[in-house]
Amino acid sequence: MKVLKPIYFLLALFLSFYPLCSRGEMSAGDYYIYADSVNTGGVISGGDYGVRGTFNESPIGFTTSTSYETRGGYQPMELGMKVSASSLSLGTLSATAIKTASADAIVWSDAGTGYTLSIGGVSGTSIANVSDGIITIGSEEYGLSVSGVDRAFTNDRAIAERLILASSSEPVTNSKTTLTFKASISDTSVGGSYSQAIVLTVSGNF
């Protein structure tokens, strides 16, 4: 019997570690825990209740020391943007042509809900904004169009705060949206010098 004791001990130790730490689902008579994680969570359901989520998630964010870094939590981890130009010039505006200038906004996000690119702020002065969806030669109009797979509209729009330029409901890698700024003036337009500062905002989706 004494000989068997260490074997029982080893067997118990083995069984206590073996399946539960690797399984994605636990169940009993009137409940199951599906996709459980180390610190509990997933879907718990029973006769009268059901809970889905992650509990007691800790630590979240970054935990660092001199020799290690832990990026904890179940949240999407990275969002990046590159704007190809920090300033654009439309040159001297004309009543016989539409002047254009373009910049690319390149976004990547590993958020499962995708991303949204919008205008976060506009300051400065400009000529009259486009209001009919298309900038026409000989009319005083200013606006922008967007191109790219995630573009939010297909016509010319006035530049305004919270104008959504592009969005996706999936993670993206280097999704490029080209912003083309356009302006035209009429023969009666008043001469002057204009400048604008535009903030491009990118975030994941809730």
């Binding site: 969002l79 990046g80 943007m81 590159k82 704007v83 130009a85 920090s86 300033s87 654009l88 010039s89 439309l90 200038a101 910049a103 906004a105 976060g120 702020g121 400065g124 912003l179 700024f181 010098s193 204009y194 400048s195 604008q196 500062a197 535009i198 903030v199 491009l200 905002t201 990118v202 975030s203």
Partner: peptide, 10 residues
């Protein structure tokens, strides 16, 4: 005389 562009990550 320019359109200035800057990025904001949220």
């Amino acid at each position: 005389n320019q359109v200035g562009l800057s990025g904001r990550l949220v």
